[in-house]
Design a protein around this nucleic acid. Structure first.
Lengths: 196, 196, 196, 196
DNA sequence: TAATAACCGAGACGGTACGTCTCGTCTTAGG
DNA sequence: CCTAAGACGAGACGTACCGTCTCGGTTATTA
């Protein structure tokens, strides 16, 4: 029982956090600043999030949002739509800026890792999975392909550039991985000679 | 001139850092702890490394080591050798454990990002680049492929799993990406109809 | 009008406060703890006491209680009775333990200071004043003595020991101050040569 | 070994604390404020004082200082000199303001109580003790008097007024207690009839 | 009998200070 | 000039406690 949580505080906290992240970057996010900007006591934040990191991922998750599953009839077009969206989201702040810190936080805290994956990575991954499945049904992709590998082949290069190499995250990348996937996992009557 | 650096201190610092990383994880690595464990003053550490993060990457780099460029005559075998080595190194601690923190640190500090990339990512990437180039020469790969994309398609899924999805880093992954690359970037007389 | 205050809550609050003071000391008295121990909401406490400090002095006052004015016919006996009672009350917990905190609280809050003085110090002081007045009437004390000074000379040493020196608060003290007062303020025909 | 404590920091901290106490009172002394005003990190304060309270008493002790033992040849004059000094010190800020908080802090922490008593109460008490002893030698005071009681009879009323009653702390008080002591503990051939 | 008003326990709220922690620098004495 | 030891300035963290407010619900008095 007791006084219920104030939903306005929930929103104020997330808004303040996102503003501050946008202004000064992820690393510079201070709990005290969030409290002040939100017009909220620190305890009110810590009642909702166990730590600064938890607040951080909640803020990012709120920003990334959900994704609709495209269905144009063309496997290539669907994949491109999803990759194009991913390139847009992760190609610039705040998501681009937030991911490295998030990755580190996930490593520190397995519970947070699970929450992050389920929270805002899963929906995009599920969308890709659906499109790949339809590609198989449609005959565009080999029915025996390793779906997890396919998904990682699509998303991996993007995150690799984002987190590690600093390479460009743009439509060329999106087109490149889609093209690679469609060729590499194409249905193929004449089986390629295996590496004998 | 004056007294030369003590080589024993160099070793003691790295050993202590690696021990502590192994025991408590990368995030819990404190400079004071390293100093105490190594029986060394903090200044002795900071004379060698500009920051905690620099010490961290040095410790990891010491663990990862260099890589030789394989040359078996088979593009597939060469790629597989490199990927197999990568799977071994990043598939288990300490590198597996260290990468997320390193990624975050790279984001914080561009100089460190450069150092990391040049320090111990570059040699693997250069090896891959060489093997891919030979694959083109040999006619196993299309001459007009986007080399950067090819490298990211090889390394990306591995790091994606390591940093983000938590997926398995094993020989299936290595074989999968190599196979995907060889098929997807295969030299092909009958050009696939582009996405018109 | 409306629902009347619950008398059980009054008692539960004071009991809980006294228990907690006895267990952990005055400084460690937390309003939340009192509320929980009393099975009462915090608002119910704050409806009765303006602040933690007010609750505190109420609890102490409830413990100290009132004092009757003795009248044995002997000034010395009457003074001794009052001092003996004071020694009993302030010589041991909870009053002994509570006074220092009370003193600090009085300093913080003048209103509380007034309340404390009028609440449970005044009755003892009034009793002493009455006995001293009778002593003057009776010819045991000089009629021109400074009554306030006399009262402070009786009570001062006790509180001094209680609050500052930590000296013993016992019957020797009671007898000592009474004796000092009777001699020092005795009616005296042959006036002592003043400090010329 | 290692770097020694910086004596300038010691001074800067105490100075800052005293300034702030003078400006805003004892209760309003914040550790962060002291640190900022002193140009010092908080850790540097906490390395010297276990808590805010410890810092507080150190600051007060630094202010109260030592006292010389007067020796005019007259017991009354010597006592008056000491009491007059006490009235001056405790009659106005900062000591007047600080004592209540100090008393409460002493109650919280026995070690601090000891430190306080030995630190800046002991020297005044020792001076009084010496003067009383000379008064006995000189024949002004009874040789069998309870010295502790005599000291408490001198100091008690002052602290009682300061801490409890809020009564005036002035020369009348000083003269009153000295006079009371000299009369009440006077050497007296004709013993007063005890309260038989 | 219904409405009203003040009460009740529970617990969230804004605010504020605390004491801890870690970083990277600086200062000793000594080799 | 290096070394070990450890103090230093800076500044964020998470906790604790205060006194207030907001729930849903209860209990008397008033209409």
């Amino acid at each position: 029982m007791g006084r219920p949580r104030d939903a306005r505080a929930d929103a104020a906290i997330l808004d303040a956090a996102l503003d501050l992240i946008a202004e000064h970057g992820v690393e510079a996010l201070r709990v005290d600043d969030v409290a002040e900007r939100a017009g909220v006591g620190k305890a009110t934040i810590y009642r909702r999030y166990r730590s600064r990191d938890q607040l951080l991922i909640a803020a990012i998750a709120a920003q990334v949002g959900e994704i609709a599953i495209p269905n144009t009839g063309s496997t290539e077009a669907d994949l491109l739509a999803l990759m194009s969206d991913a390139v847009t989201v992760y190609g610039r702040p705040p998501a681009a800026q937030a991911m490295p810190a998030l990755v580190a936080a996930m490593n520190r805290d397995p519970a947070l890792a699970r929450a992050t994956r389920e929270g805002f990575l899963a929906s995009r991954r599920a969308a890709l999975r659906e499109v790949v499945a339809r590609g198989i049904d449609r005959g565009d992709l080999r029915p025996d392909l390793d779906v997890e590998l396919a998904l990682d082949a699509l998303g991996g290069p993007l995150f690799y550039r984002l987190l590690v190499t600093g390479g460009p995250i743009d439509m060329n990348l999106a087109r490149g991985v889609v093209d690679l996937l469609l060729r590499g996992f194409a249905r193929d009557k004449r089986r390629r000679r295996a590496a004998t």
